[in-house]
Computed example of a mutant assay.
Amino acid sequence: MPVYHSTFLADPDTRLIGNFAVMPLRTKFRGPAYPTSEDYDIIDEVLDLFRANSFFRNFEIKGPADRTLIYGILFITDCLSAISSKAGKADRTEAGRILNTFALEHFSIPGDPGFPLNSLYAAPRDRAEADMLRGYLSQFRQELAVRLIDRVYANGDVPSKYWLAFTRRRFMNKSLSSSA
């Protein structure tokens, strides 16, 4: 069974920072991402491909959009771990607060010593690119957290066991958080 790659690989107008694709987002959060009016963006793709791709230990990167996909999948894994640690008492509102805080807390970017995938990602060239990438990833994480809550809590205040079952899976045996 093959791994699922990003459908945005063929997009010729993709901005790059290092070798990380800065894709347009359909979002209400401020940041450097170009807004898009498309119905399907990279965040929708990350959410759609998360469960299928999380079974794979190896992932052949075919382009910059795949790096964005990998980052999103690893972020979802960390979000689900944060929700499941409070799953017995976390309703939709509490989970939203947990993930909002998690999305905004300090995180490493490619090139930082604490970033777990430095071998796959190129560091930004200068401080301006690093700041732009940090802003994009912050915007990306916030929007992904909001849309993840909508999927995990689709049936009200009880989280879906079909999403929380993936907390024990480690895509590529990696995690973005230093605690996991």
Score class of each variant (00 low, 15 high):
1 M>S: 04
3 V>A: 08
3 V>Y: 07
3 V>H: 05
6 S>L: 09
7 T>Y: 11
8 F>W: 08
9 L>H: 09
12 P>C: 04
17 I>Y: 01
18 G>T: 05
20 F>W: 01
20 F>S: 03
20 F>P: 04
21 A>G: 10
29 F>W: 15
31 G>N: 12
36 T>N: 12
38 E>Y: 12
41 D>I: 10
47 L>H: 11
49 L>E: 09
49 L>G: 03
52 A>N: 06
64 P>W: 00
71 Y>G: 00
79 C>W: 05
80 L>D: 10
83 I>M: 00
84 S>L: 06
84 S>K: 12
90 A>F: 08
94 E>M: 13
94 E>V: 15
96 G>L: 02
96 G>V: 00
111 G>D: 13
111 G>Y: 13
115 F>R: 01
119 S>E: 12
120 L>R: 09
125 R>D: 14
126 D>K: 10
129 E>R: 00
129 E>S: 03
131 D>V: 10
132 M>D: 14
133 L>F: 13
135 G>R: 05
136 Y>K: 05
137 L>A: 02
139 Q>F: 13
141 R>W: 01
144 L>V: 06
144 L>C: 07
149 I>A: 01
149 I>D: 06
151 R>E: 11
153 Y>R: 04
156 G>K: 04
157 D>Q: 08
159 P>G: 06
160 S>I: 06
160 S>N: 08
161 K>N: 12
165 A>C: 07
166 F>S: 07
170 R>N: 08
177 S>F: 13
179 S>K: 15
